[in-house]
Design a binder for these strands. Sequence first.
DNA 1: TGATTAAGATACGTGGCCGTATCTTAAGTG
DNA 2: CACTTAAGATACGGCCACGTATCTTAATCA
Lengths: 200, 200
Amino acid sequence: MTKQATRRRGDDLVRSIHEAVLAELAEVGLGRLTMEGIARRARTAKTSLYRRWASPHDVLLDAIHDEHPQEVPSPSADDLRGDLIRALRQLVEWTRSPTAAAAAAILGERKRYPELAAALYERVFDARGGRFTLTVLRYYAARGHLDPALITPVVADIGEALVLKHSLDADAPPSDEQLAAIVDQAILPAVGRGPQRAAR
Amino acid sequence: MTKQATRRRGDDLVRSIHEAVLAELAEVGLGRLTMEGIARRARTAKTSLYRRWASPHDVLLDAIHDEHPQEVPSPSADDLRGDLIRALRQLVEWTRSPTAAAAAAILGERKRYPELAAALYERVFDARGGRFTLTVLRYYAARGHLDPALITPVVADIGEALVLKHSLDADAPPSDEQLAAIVDQAILPAVGRGPQRAAR
DNA sequence: TGATTAAGATACGTGGCCGTATCTTAAGTG
DNA sequence: CACTTAAGATACGGCCACGTATCTTAATCA
């Protein structure tokens, strides 16, 4: 009866639960996400969960919904290479957030839980306003430094794809040196800079 | 007592179970893989499973172990572009196999079940003997058609990475046209061919 | 054919999560 | 300071997977 001296309410409690569900997801995975588990981790009563949500997935959707996307990189100067590296570094940093871990878990089981994946794209990816490197490439194309015809969907994906592949293979995101290699050896050649012979 | 007129034994039964565990994995995911589920799907008794394996993961490991990797592409002629496209197409086709689905499920939960991921690399990826496009690139480099210095780890990963990213985004592997776009717009520029101005 | 081996069927207690109901009590409200 | 609102604690039957034990019986072998 008397276990809690203090008691969270409203948004305060909801925020704790959102944290809890992301942590629980990271630990046990989407398939083992459970109301009791979330309640335990949030140090609340199962009852309080059921008052608001009908299932673990509902809690998770709400938590994702609540995530405010971080800002997109803004190209800084006349430094295409540096801006690309910085854009990828932002991607890598996002990778370490709880939302990113949740995103990975959800995408990994997309076939089994399509509603979650759909919500993820709506709430997180679309809301973020597009790819990281694409923003940079468009900026330089608009200023006449790049041929806009070269900025195809495939080219816009090169950086993100290689970061993803590296993370998958090495189980860790690429270092700054590796990001530079990605920019130098894959992205820049695709937009007409190099590899060996400079394009202008 | 009398439900089965016929009865599988030995390797025959084991093969059925291996199929069953891969199918079960595809359906319910790694987190919900269960001895009873596997037994149900393989139409065998739980007892028979426990006679050989101690856990669902053990069954899965055994099933993966058993998979014989398919052959690696052999470059055919003096057609770098065509060979690259064919190599990626082989990757896409592998993608549709049960083992590939299992691999995806395991890699998605690598953090939670590292032993499975390790076994996967040993049994499947390493045994396959390397990347798809890498084989092709090395072939042409050895014949003096490409600068070997350009075939870095990053460049060797471009094709696979973009196929992976596309599959993730679109929830379906790329079409032949999209594979061609990947080769033309990302791989060939990185090895000094293109994008617009031919390198030789 | 008769003996041996291994699979099938069934049952059991245990434990975890389910969803709900009930009651107590702390936190906010006028 | 009453009063209302909402969270905490607990208990319940139901279901499902666990891991094991026991018995029957088909497949294989000598």
